[in-house]
């Protein structure tokens, strides 16, 4: 039940886009059509589902204060957490590269769908944001951290597909010229954010 709660919370209550604005750059740039938005969204789910558990292991067995005791009991006071930014981003960048190569080799069809989006994702704020929230919230086990990663990924996918669908339709509306494109997308995202706030406080 705890897992389900974290998952639903990641999608609706603590949505990466609507509650924290993470990954807004690619969200605005790649949301012109539903098809590409869907591809990028799936790639984000994929990468978040992989990097959050890896960073969880890194955090709990290398970086946290006293995390190195499995190596030697005298390391109990070593605190490497100031290195976490650089370690997380290195893990993310190399994982994205690795995932891209593996997918290209073993799943060419998937690569055709996700391929061009994978390199973009290394600098998507939602991936690093996922790792940093995982660090801040101190999930008790790797299962919960993975669920959180997947849940936030699905939330991000939902947000970008929804805005892409709206943008496809809004082309036929009579939006004031200075608001067209970027401006109206911001305002619609704001309104969607207000709608998503109705999920606040949901506990399952």
């Amino acid at each position: 039940m705890e897992y389900f709660n974290i998952f639903v919370k990641g999608i609706f209550v603590e949505n990466m886009i609507f509650a924290y604005f993470l990954g807004m750059c690619s969200y605005l740039a790649v949301s012109k059509t539903v098809k590409t938005a869907n591809g990028l969204g799936l790639a984000v789910i994929f990468v978040l589902g992989i990097t959050v558990p890896i960073n969880y292991l890194l955090e709990n067995y290398v970086l946290k204060e006293g995390a190195l005791t499995w190596l030697d009991p005298t390391f109990a006071t070593v605190d490497l957490s100031f290195l976490s930014f650089i370690m997380f981003i290195a893990v993310i960048a190399s994982m994205v590269q690795l995932v891209e190569m593996i997918v290209e080799k073993f799943a060419p069809a998937l690569y055709g769908a996700l391929g061009i989006f994978l390199p973009l994702i290394a600098v998507n704020c939602s991936i690093l944001g996922g790792a940093l929230f995982m660090q801040e919230r101190q999930y008790p086990s790797i299962g919960e951290a993975t669920t959180f990663g997947l849940g936030s990924g699905v939330g991000w996918w939902l947000a970008i597909v929804a805005i892409a669908a709206i943008r496809e339709k809004i082309r036929y509306s009579n939006v004031p010229a200075p608001l067209q494109g970027l401006g109206i997308t911001y305002i619609i995202t704001g309104l969607m954010g207000i709608a998503f706030m109705s999920f606040m406080g949901i506990e399952i």
Binding site: A19, P178, L179, G183, Y186, I187, T189, M192, M197
Partner: peptide
């Protein structure tokens, strides 16, 4: 609330453009 930041930026863009 967070969503209003988006609306305010949207309005800045509107004025600027």
């Amino acid at each position: 609330l967070p969503p209003m930041a988006l609306v305010v930026v949207g309005i800045i863009i509107w004025i600027q453009r």
